[in-house]
Design a protein around this nucleic acid. Structure first.
Length: 835
DNA sequence: CCAGGATTT
């Protein structure tokens, strides 16, 4: 074993919060399966205590339960602030509430506000994850002494997540996922159902949260224009775990300030038409400079060259950004300033909401709530390490020899490869331990693991044994593991990053942020005082970014832009975002939507775009569905099956041993199609659907995820239903193959070709051709690309490829690969996707 | 010539 890294180490104590016994979650007693993920639930709200009953006795029981929970509520740190929180929102539109772990904010804030005089509608609380939305709703229902959602029409608490809606008419408090609120925004742009929207876990800065904050700011400040305004004001609560309250305050105040300045400006404009120059994000706005940004999007196909010359121009007042393609001028930001201006709406001074206009800082209140966590002692390395696996190994045994039981160890690693490597080395070393030492049980934990394997982590080890859990980031926020007292933090994680010019995403190991490090450390202090070993120096910690980069700065923006366009945001460049993405990222996303036909030449969402936006899919995949609906939707059911499979990650499991891998290969052989992964998915979905006897055994034999296939069937059902609603599919009664239980497993060559041609409508930019040396080069940009080893086409040579994902890890890989013909790619472009 | 951090509609 390597030398001890922590000898002569620096010690430091952080965050000694007050703690009283009988905290929120002293023991965890229920394992709940949801969506293939195992989650724990806190003790007091265990499943058995929440079994709803419609009998009278059951209701009395509920009330008694709620009464006993009241005492627990009053112990929460946030309880003392309930009056302040209510008053803050009596006087302000926005409250930024920063509450540390264990403060009770996610369960209590909605209950406090329910009693506010102005709160007549529903309260929405958004969560980034499904499980959180459901378990919080369950907890709050118990505290309020009411049944949960759909179990009774009188229920006052419910939740809404995809595939699982538990709501009722009398409901006042609704927990929902961020994605669900964005979906509601499509139907109800002013969120009229709600008196308050509470946005929880904002510090995670998911792209959905950033979009939601933008939409909420537009509503609450009056930046949003158009018809259908609210009669009552919307209140907004932003809840964050970290201390960077400032940026959220600034974000909302900017909105209020902007409206005031706009109104002053309008008054001034009565006298003088002001054409002052302004610039956005460093882009020159000079009129003389004809092409401040110019890009050659040449796509050579069949000798023809489609030139997409991108030119931007900006007149600050009318924002008529446009692209020129083959001499055609196409607006990206349509000018609706003439038609939209004078509409009286929320927040404008001539309306009944005059108090909006008293512009001082009173629009935005802030509040800080102490958390309740056990103290965690932190150790740093005296010197940086260049081999975190070796350091982890040393640290595991240093803890095992030096720290008492009970107390399990959680190690944060980067991915499946590092988890498996460390598992092997820890197990090897453990065999050489003295027999009187406690045993070590090593448990891997990452998303691709089967639910049964994930469940191992939550079971107590029997005998004189210490659990060592080797996890990816999944254990940082998504899963909470009981019994952890020692955390080893490598300071690394894999992060995805989208590269605009290349249309390529990378998945690379990066140094984590300080807030991630704090979050990881906190995993040791949930049930008792703990210790955290950071496999980097204290200086290393100081040099980390304070927070991680928001997702919106790291991803393909076409999806987010379609979300905005479909919800009436034409001027996407001025949509309020806390961290506006680079201009070229927006251009790229808009251009992508344009080539998909989701936008018209004027930059307005097209009928195709509207259809796409109603599908819970990436724009490219949504476009494939819409394409499949043309020609009488002949192959749309097949396409839906494939798309459904594409949306589910880790469908085909990767067995740990070589032997099992071969077993999987032979079992899957009947599903494999030489045309590639897409048609292999089709055969898989149909074959699974046709299996009536034992679907679980069917998946196990083939090393296919059972949960994953169940998910595929859910998505398939949803896509079919959405397509029927939009008349992309005929109603089910006249549908020949409504369910493929009887459908053919194989499709003809002609049908395969038609299907792949539909996919080219969404993915013509993701194509590559075979080079003389046997490698593949993309059509767009001529970049080298290799077929991913998980593909059925791995190692095969075909004249051209189409792929669903282009990702850089060790090198550039194509995933979701199909064999196509060169001339199909030309056809896809001639078909007029630039409508 | 050999591999996918985590969410979500």
């Amino acid at each position: 074993m390597a030398s001890e890294p922590f000898r002569g180490q620096k010690r430091k104590r952080e965050h000694h919060h007050h703690h009283s016994k009988g905290g929120t979650n002293p023991h965890v007693n229920v394992i709940q399966k949801l969506d293939g993920k195992i989650t724990t639930q806190g003790g007091p709200q265990s499943k058995s205590t929440l079994q709803e009953s419609h009998s009278k006795g059951g209701r009395i029981n509920q009330r008694e339960k709620a009464k006993s929970l009241q005492a627990v509520r009053e112990q929460l740190p946030i309880w003392r602030s309930r009056k302040d929180i209510r008053e803050a929102l009596d006087q302000n539109d926005v409250l930024i509430l920063s509450g540390e772990t264990g403060s009770g904010k996610s369960t209590q804030v909605p209950q406090f506000l329910l009693e506010s005089q102005w709160c007549k509608g529903q309260i929405a609380i958004t969560q980034p994850r499904r499980v959180a939305a459901i378990s919080l709703a369950r907890r709050v229902a118990a505290e309020m002494g009411t049944t949960l959602g759909s179990s009774s029409p009188a229920s006052r608490v419910g939740y809404s997540v995809r595939f699982d809606n538990s709501t009722s008419p009398a409901m006042r408090v609704k927990y929902l996922t961020e994605g669900m609120l964005l979906q509601e925004l499509l139907r109800d742009p002013w969120l009229k159902n709600y008196s308050i929207v509470v946005v929880d876990e904002v510090h995670e800065r998911s792209i959905n949260v950033d979009l939601i904050l933008g939409f909420l700011r537009r509503i609450v400040t009056g930046e949003a224009q158009g018809e259908g305004k609210r009669e009552k004001r919307l209140k907004v609560v932003i809840m964050s775990a970290t201390v960077d309250v400032e940026s959220f305050v600034e974000f909302f105040q900017t909105g209020f300030r902007k409206i005031e300045e706009q109104q002053k400006q309008e008054a001034a404009d009565e006298e003088e038409d002001n054409y002052s120059e302004s610039s956005w994000s460093g882009i020159s706005t000079s009129e003389d400079e004809k092409a401040p940004l110019q890009k050659d999007n040449s796509i050579p196909v069949n000798g023809n060259v489609t030139k997409a010359l991108l030119r931007f121009k900006n007149k600050p007042r009318d924002k008529s950004d446009y692209i020129t393609i083959n001499g055609k001028v196409i607006n990206l930001v349509p000018d609706r300033s003439k038609s939209q201006q004078k509409e009286p709406c929320l927040g404008q001074p001539n309306g009944q909401n005059e108090e909006y206009r008293t512009l001082d800082t009173k629009h935005v209140a802030t509040c800080f709530i102490k958390g309740r966590q056990y103290p965690v002692q932190v150790f740093y390395m005296p010197e940086p390490t260049n081999d975190f696996l070796e350091s982890s190994l040393t640290a595991v045994f240093q803890i095992h020899y030096g720290e008492p039981l009970p107390g399990d160890i959680l190690v944060f690693l980067t991915g499946q490869d590092t988890v498996e490597a460390l598992q092997k080395s820890v197990e090897d070393h453990a065999t050489g331990m003295a027999p009187e030492m406690p045993k070590i049980l090593v448990l891997p934990l990452f998303a691709a693991l089967s639910p049964a394997q994930q469940a191992q982590v939550f079971l107590p080890a029997h005998g004189y044994t210490r659990k060592v859990i080797l996890a990816t980031n999944i254990a940082e926020t998504s899963l909470t593991i009981p019994g952890i007292r020692y955390v080893i933090d490598t300071g690394k994680a894999k992060a995805k990053h989208f590269h605009n010019g290349l249309g390529l995403e990378s998945l690379l190991v990066k140094t984590i942020s300080q807030s991630s490090a704090i979050q990881r450390k906190g995993r040791a202090g949930r049930e008792m005082p703990g210790k955290c070993w950071r496999l980097y120096t204290e200086q290393g910690y100081q040099e980390m970014e304070k927070t991680g980069q928001p997702e919106i700065l790291r991803c393909d923006l076409s999806s987010a832009l379609l979300v905005m366009k479909a919800r009436g945001v034409d001027d996407v460049i001025n949509f309020p975002l806390m961290n506006p993405p680079r201009r070229d990222g927006i251009e790229n996303g808009l251009l992508h939507l344009l080539t998909l036909g989701a936008l018209t030449e004027r930059g307005v969402i097209s009928s195709i775009g509207i259809q796409m936006s109603r599908l819970p899919l990436l724009p490219s995949l949504a476009r494939v569905i819409v394409e499949g609906a043309r020609n009488d939707g002949e192959y749309l059911l097949e396409i839906i099956d494939i798309v459904a499979a594409l949306t589910v990650e880790n469908l085909f499991l990767n067995p740990a041993t070589e032997e099992k891998r071969e077993e999987a290969d032979t079992a899957r052989a009947e599903l494999t199609r030489r045309q590639g992964d897409l048609l292999t998915f089709l055969a898989t979905v149909r074959s699974y659907a046709a299996e009536n006897a034992n679907r679980k055994a069917w998946t196990e034999k083939r090393y296919i995820s059972h949960r994953g296939m169940q998910n595929v069937m859910n998505v398939r059902k949803q896509l079919r239903s959405l397509c029927q609603q939009q008349k992309l599919l005929p109603p089910s009664s006249s549908l020949k193959f409504h369910d493929y239980d009887e459908g053919p497993l194989n499709v003809s060559e002609d049908i395969s070709t038609s299907i792949l041609k539909c996919f080219l409508k969404g993915f013509h930019a993701n194509t590559a051709r075979l080079m003389p040396d046997g490698s593949y080069k993309t059509f767009v940009g001529n970049h080298a690309v290799a077929i991913h080893p998980s593909s059925v086409l791995f190692g095969k040579k075909v004249e051209a490829l189409m792929f669903v994902q282009f990702v850089f890890t060790n090198k550039s890989y194509a995933r979701g690969v199909s064999a196509v013909q060169l001339n199909w790619i030309g056809d896809a472009l001639d078909g007029g996707e630039i409508a």
